[in-house]
Write a protein that binds this DNA or RNA. Structure first.
Lengths: 195, 195
DNA sequence: TTTCCATCTTTACACTGTCAGGATTGTGCC
DNA sequence: GGCACAATCCTGACAGTGTAAAGATGGAAA
């Protein structure tokens, strides 16, 4: 943005590339994602990303790791303004799950619907594991004990997020944000564990 | 397979290309899907598909339209061997939904997690609409009346299918097929409309 | 048989990711 | 301060991709 034309060693190229990559992902979608476009947007040569991320998969892996942290943050933001009882916290996590998918659909698709990130990467594994453990913790706090308890909550939130982000749930297309939230709450409450 | 080397006008190139495309999709995934590889597998020049499908998106669109029909058939196969009461039919549809995702994960991802097919295409719209209407019909037959009823069933089945096909539900990784079916049944029964 | 047209091939071009080698700049050591 | 070294970035090249244009082939209608 405010950089003067000093090509070499501008310090935080790695962060700039990650930012440019997410913008490219949001604008062109994951299908047309191009490493050269990212480099061009960052104002750098087409081979510069290789030094920081290895290859295109490495860049998308780093972006996914960062994305999982933001994904978890979106859930926690909803939990922070929800009643403290475990069922309400679980419903709030579902709302945050959908928030993230609707606000950043391309990134959401990178996290859950793409095989380009290398899921053996330590950073990505750690970030994804944190999001997973957070969900498991919420389910257990609400009294969930079985695999079905965990799967029901996760699958329902994930299905709502994926279908809404893709615009497939046509009946919800005309909903306002509050109507949509109310619907999500209603659905999530059906799968929250009941002791 | 049993074709003799008669290059020109071998009759059913369109069907052969669709078959090759699905095989390529299953083997290399949607990320590495290549039109030239499909043509090579079909034993034809790399520009031959253009005449039948226009461009790569056209081929994937036709593949998706065919895929939605098979997707609906997988649900109906489960319904055919289930009790005839509406709730059981709805649970069976969910099992078929997951069956399809597990047996053809790349195709499932093409249908629900890709923007490459052209969803304005008439054939694709018709096939997707048929699958959607079938679900809506089952929900209504079971007593569902609200948007939440429809969304709960669809999202849960879709979430289970997507997460299982991606291998994300680690707790289910060690399950046998019957154990997995039992878990899916248990989850689906929580969101089936109850009058 | 002759003409026409759908089908398929060949050729070409721009774009992509990746690699090798060269240019530039900051940094530790004397 | 001056210098070798390493980190960083650029240039150039290559194989592979999708797509368009133009030519080749063979079936079908006249």
């Amino acid at each position: 943005m405010s950089d003067e034309p000093k090509p070499y060693h501008h310090g935080d190229l790695r962060a700039v590339l990650l930012h440019a990559a997410e913008a490219e992902l949001a604008e062109r979608g994951i299908e047309a994602f191009s490493l050269r476009s990212v480099a061009k947007r960052a104002g750098v040569s087409h081979a510069a990303p290789a030094h920081h991320f290895g290859d295109a998969g490495g860049l998308l892996t780093a972006l996914a790791a960062q994305g999982f942290q933001q994904f978890l943050a979106a859930q926690m933001a909803r939990e922070a303004v929800a009643p403290p009882d475990p069922p309400a916290q679980l419903v709030a996590a579902g709302l945050g799950y959908v928030d993230f998918a609707l606000e950043r659909p391309a990134l959401f698709r990178l996290l859950f619907g793409s095989s380009r990130p290398e899921y053996g990467n330590a950073d990505l594994l750690r970030a994804a594991e944190a999001a997973y453990l957070h969900l498991v913790h919420l389910v257990q706090a609400a009294g969930g004990r079985t695999v079905a308890d965990e799967a029901a909550v996760w699958a329902t939130a994930h299905g709502l997020a994926d279908l809404l982000a893709a615009g497939r749930l046509r009946s919800v297309g005309s909903f306002s944000a509050v109507e949509r939230d109310a619907m999500i709450r209603g659905v999530m409450e059906r799968v929250v564990p009941r002791p």
